[in-house]
Nucleic acid binder design. Structure first.
Length: 303
DNA sequence: TCCCAGGACCGAT
DNA sequence: ATCGGTCATGGG
């Protein structure tokens, strides 16, 4: 069988543009890495891909080289959210000082359309982990449990994780998250939870059902809703957003309950609160740390 | 080296 | 309802 050269898709960039660096390295997906300057290697669903922005032509475009599996024009457009009117969406963000910083820094950062299962699984693994290590876990899960292709391993199926021995999951670096990921997969296999049904449920009901899964609390449920189901109002409150809300947005309020931060704050950021949250998160981590006070670490018990 | 990381969960107030 | 302790593993 002849070796057919990999087809390369060329997608014109929509208004609002697309930044691969911001979109693929902002902590919403963990299966991409910068292979060489400006060239990103990763996965669009079950297809391996290599992407870069080509500015040479009169009309700049996104070049997507398919390395394994099938990527159609429509699938790539959908994955990168190229049909979202980014300018109009960013225009709905509150025009406060911090969002202006974040929006200026995150130009071209789009919401990816990841699969619900992949978002669920990787964010269960994300608990109390640095972004760099979540990427490592993604790679380890693929290598150990994912179907091989000529260009690497796909993300493991629900069944593959459900039947994986806990010891092998721990060997992938999951630590105490291993039993959670395995049990969540089993709950889905057994029909105790249904990702399609969650996709049909309104936000609040979807959050409740997601939190019935092992290892999924309020923060991860919101991540799955936002990144796996493209529910723009979902508002994950992690340690970064928590500090930003307390110190930058509500600096003089004494007691801020987690519930307040998840609901009142979410309403403040508007109909696309989830993307606003991601802009804040990415900006804070990359250039805005100086605006936050140092984390308060709990004093260690004396021996 | 040693502190800490895109939390969830459990039990004691 | 809120608070503290605990859960593994590796990056910086």
């Amino acid at each position: 069988m002849p070796n057919i050269p990999a087809p390369t898709l060329r997608l014109p960039l929509p208004p609002g543009g697309l930044s691969l660096a911001h979109t693929l390295d902002c902590g919403q997906a963990f299966c991409w890495h910068e292979e060489s300057p400006g060239v990103w290697r990763g996965w669009i669903a079950d297809a391996a891909a290599r992407c870069h922005i080509d500015n040479r032509t009169p009309h700049p475009h996104l070049a997507v080289e398919c390395l394994a599996g099938d990527i159609t024009d429509a699938r790539a457009r959908h994955y990168f959210g190229l049909d979202d009117d980014l300018d109009s969406i960013v225009a709905t963000f509150p025009a406060d000082r911090w969002m202006r910083h974040a929006s200026a820094h995150c130009r071209g950062l789009r919401l990816l359309r990841q699969s619900p299962w992949e978002a669920l699984a990787i964010f269960i693994c994300s608990a109390v982990k640095q972004v760099a290590h979540i990427q490592q876990i993604d790679a380890a899960l693929r290598a150990r449990f994912g179907e091989p292709t000529p260009a690497g391993h796909r993300f493991p199926t629900i069944a593959a994780i459900a039947s994986a021995p806990e010891s092998q999951l721990r060997a992938a670096g999951l630590g105490f998250r291993a039993p959670n990921l395995r049990q969540a997969a089993r709950q889905l296999i057994d029909g105790d939870a249904d990702l399609d049904a969650i996709g049909r449920a309104p936000d609040q009901e979807a959050l409740v059902q997601l939190q019935e899964l092992a290892g999924v609390g309020p923060k991860i449920a919101n991540c799955v809703l936002l990144f796996g189901y493209a529910r723009w109002r979902a508002f994950p409150v992690d340690t970064w957003i928590d500090r930003a809300l307390r110190h930058l947005y509500y600096p003089r309020k004494r007691r801020l309950s987690p519930e307040f931060l998840r609901t009142e704050a979410r309403d403040y950021f508007g109909p696309y609160a989830g993307l606003a949250q991601q802009y804040l998160f990415h900006w804070l981590r990359k250039v805005g740390r100086e605006h936050l006070p140092p984390r308060q670490s709990r004093p260690r018990r004396s021996p």
